[in-house]
């Protein structure tokens, strides 16, 4: 049961570290995950990014995001490992499965109630493409601030 939790791990590798070493760090984490019977579901490298503030005299760093499925003990071990690794200047582990489940439930409820309301108005339950005015303009361009592309 507790084996099946989803975590998100973000770590910042110091800018002096080379590509090869960054890849090595990833394989190290992979090994730990395998040892604890977990699984890495997704792994993405954001590349070099400017930090919002200095961390230990570093002004930029390489961001790596991993989505890991596994137990709390596994994440504890990873946390301990990352803490002692000098090349990693910052890391963050967040448990995400519960939040995502809640979000999913919200989405379902909204969809259901929307369908109910539409049927009550004598419309088909699913809105057709282009039916709503806001459909196209939804991905707004005006408040675009420099940042990484992240999909939700």
């Amino acid at each position: 049961m507790s084996q099946n939790r989803q975590y998100e791990l973000v770590y910042i590798v110091s800018p002096e570290t080379g590509e090869q070493e960054t890849a090595d760090l990833h394989t190290q984490i992979e090994h730990i995950v395998q040892r604890f019977n977990g699984a890495i579901e997704k792994s993405e490298n954001w590349g070099r990014r400017k930090l919002a503030y200095e961390i230990g005299h570093h002004r930029e760093g390489t961001y790596v995001v991993e989505t890991i499925r596994g137990s709390g003990e596994l994440m504890k071990e990873i946390d301990r490992r990352l803490r002692v690794t000098d090349a990693i200047i910052r890391h963050l582990i967040v448990r995400v499965d519960e939040d995502l489940r809640v979000a999913e439930r919200h989405r379902e409820t909204r969809k259901a109630s929307q369908a109910r309301r539409r049927v009550a108005r004598g419309l088909p339950p699913e809105p057709e493409a282009g039916e709503r005015r806001g459909d196209r303009e939804m991905d707004d361009d005006e408040d675009r601030i420099e940042g990484v592309e992240v999909q939700r």
């Binding site: 995001v65 939040d99 979000a103 989405r107 909204r110 990484v148 992240v150 939700r152």
Partner: peptide, 17 residues
């Protein structure tokens, strides 16, 4: 309004405003 259920901490563009 935008029906955002999960506020992602990695989405800087969403948080910046």
């Amino acid at each position: 309004a935008d029906k955002i259920d999960y506020i992602n901490y990695k989405d800087v563009r969403l948080l910046m405003p």
